[in-house]
Design a protein around this nucleic acid. Structure first.
Lengths: 344, 344
DNA sequence: AATTAAAAAGCAAACGTTTTCATAAAAAAA
DNA sequence: TTTTTTTATGAAAACGTTTGCTTTTTAATT
């Protein structure tokens, strides 16, 4: 029965080698002979040795952990991004430690503290809704800890980002509504303090402009918490407008589904009376009736891309602070909520 | 401009105190005078000191990390459990490191290794579908690392568990079908190698038995991967059976939704021709038409309970291995998919 | 065989804490 | 005041690695 924890020292003693030799052998250092390396590996296996990451991290003052900060883990988009990150991280010998900011600024600051204390090798973050200044993130650079933002990214200083082209996606969605013959297109927008929702609104506006389509301030509604209920409630107000909109582009799927369900209760037919487009391609978008046309947000790819970018930074010894931006392509997924018989 | 990293030593020098005094002051040790403690706290604040968890963990041979192993992070149930865990952990000064097993045995073993190497303070795990022997989890006890299973729990040896009463929930669901007048009740079962799906099947059987209701082997279908498509595909086979079932209890919501959508395509009316019940209370269950009667799985509470139980074990110095089981109550949520006019 | 060069192994000092044990200062008791 | 007790501080040794530098061994060259 093996000792609960075997250290390098134990291994060295057992093999009649020095600590340093054993250590180097295990990390495949050049200066160890093949024969010795093999002996060490065999011995490690036999004694059940495995490294103590704490000690190693302390010595190297860098851990094999990657920190992640997201608003909430149980938001479908974020859980997929995280899944993508974990996958790439694990393959490269890293583990992920995850913090939820709950969209609170204060909590996000605490999260950065915690990750700093754990000397994570790098950080991937999506900004909290509340966050306005990003100074707390600058501390990472003091510790030479690479940082990658995704989705809701920092605008204040140069940094690495992984995003989708929200502007273009929104443009594409709005254009699609125009293409199927919509004349009066409304937009349920998200909180304008964050880059993504702002870009989606801009894309919507640009498409209208480029097509000389009707623009009405009343057609734009900013909702801070884009959930089902808000969409449901708002739909009646929206359809009470004169003239009534005949197309709606929503900044996410939840509100879009809320709109669709709300429309039903007041006798508005989707897509005949009004077409609806969402954003994210949540599973529910295939189930709702009519099924929802939407933009696929490529969450898992985003996570993978962010992780790859981060790892690249971590491995890169030059402590030159890079600021790359990776833009992930999005697709418009056309479903029943925009399928009309009478096309333009 | 503060030094990138201030250590206890720096702090001690600055304050003209010894390392040990400073260390003790920061952990609120009894043997430090109020005055000194205040000085130290102020100094720490001023120099921007914060602890190096690596060093602390190494010394105490225990980190402030909690390990989590789940099949996949982006499964809605799991992401909510994780969210619950993180919440409790964060409040108590712990961070969570998350591993995905992808339901693979081999990967799960690797996950336990990684967590062990990181000297996590404790582990919360949901077994991979593939896992049959749980020996790799025994290693944690060698390191005195508390362990709590949830949902798919270890059956081989005594350990801490947080579960819902799957048997009772399934019984309740089946009983409800009987109560609304169903005579021929089918069950879409999950992989029988895991405790939860076995218990759900047993609960279903018991309810039938207790009500002298019709039992048919053909009415039970085991599906390993309980997803939408499988449910959709299987529905036609199910409704081709003679006699045709008039009630179906599915082991999860995804298949239930698949069944409902499948039923539509072949002209079976839910709930009039056949009532359907799911399991988990996924968001989609309120959107599908008819909306789905289901069992709420209380995922967030499960996570919180697991975290509390684990923390309790971690703080408890006595290295007596406990084996508690916490059972979370479940509710049957009745929606349209089981609302019939002609009750029994 | 002697000298030099290259390869392999070892020594010892870090990394930043925590904690045991010893000591100094202050307060209480004699 | 002196002694005893209590309280507050300090010195130093760990925890298990990594790594710069030195030493030994082996191989290559003369």
């Amino acid at each position: 029965m093996p000792k609960p924890n075997v250290t390098l020292k134990d291994l060295a003693r057992e093999l009649n080698l020095s600590l340093s030799t054993v250590s180097r052998a295990l990390q495949n250092s050049e200066s160890i002979s093949k024969k010795t390396r093999k002996r060490v590996l065999a011995g490690a296996e036999q004694l059940g040795y495995f490294p103590n990451s704490m000690a190693s991290s302390l010595r190297r003052s860098k851990s094999n952990l990657i920190g992640i900060i997201v608003p909430r883990i149980n938001i479908y988009f974020h859980s997929r991004v995280i899944s993508g990150i974990e996958e790439v991280a694990f393959k490269n010998g890293y583990n992920v430690v995850i913090c939820q900011s709950n969209d609170s600024y204060e909590r996000e600051v605490a999260n950065t503290q915690a990750l700093l204390a754990n000397r994570v090798g790098g950080v991937i973050a999506c900004l909290a809704l509340e966050t306005e200044d990003n100074l707390h993130f600058l501390r990472f650079s003091k510790f030479n800890t690479p940082l990658v933002f995704f989705d809701r990214v920092c605008q204040e200083f140069a940094c690495n980002k992984v995003v989708i082209d929200d502007f273009e996606a929104a443009y594409k969605a709005t254009q699609h509504l125009i293409d199927i013959g919509c004349k009066r297109i409304a937009h349920i927008a998200g909180y304008q303090g964050t880059n993504i929702f702002k870009a989606r609104l801009e894309g919507y506006k640009a498409a209208l402009r480029d097509n000389d389509a009707m623009y009405l301030d009343d057609y734009i509604k900013e909702i801070k918490d884009l959930n089902y209920t808000e969409g449901y409630i708002y739909s009646s107000k929206l359809f009470a407008l004169k003239p009534q909109p005949d197309g709606i582009f929503c900044a996410n799927d939840d509100t879009a589904v809320g709109i669709i369900q709300g429309a039903k209760t007041i006798g508005i037919k989707v897509p005949e009376d009004c077409a609806v487009i969402g954003f994210s391609n949540y599973p529910v978008s295939t189930i709702v009736e009519p099924s929802l046309t939407t933009i696929d947000d490529r969450a898992i790819e985003m996570g993978q891309a962010a992780a790859k970018l981060l790892l690249q930074q971590i491995e890169d010894k030059s402590d030159f602070v890079s600021s790359q931006t990776i833009v992930i392509e999005t697709d418009l997924i056309i479903r029943e909520s925009t399928k009309r018989t009478h096309t333009k």
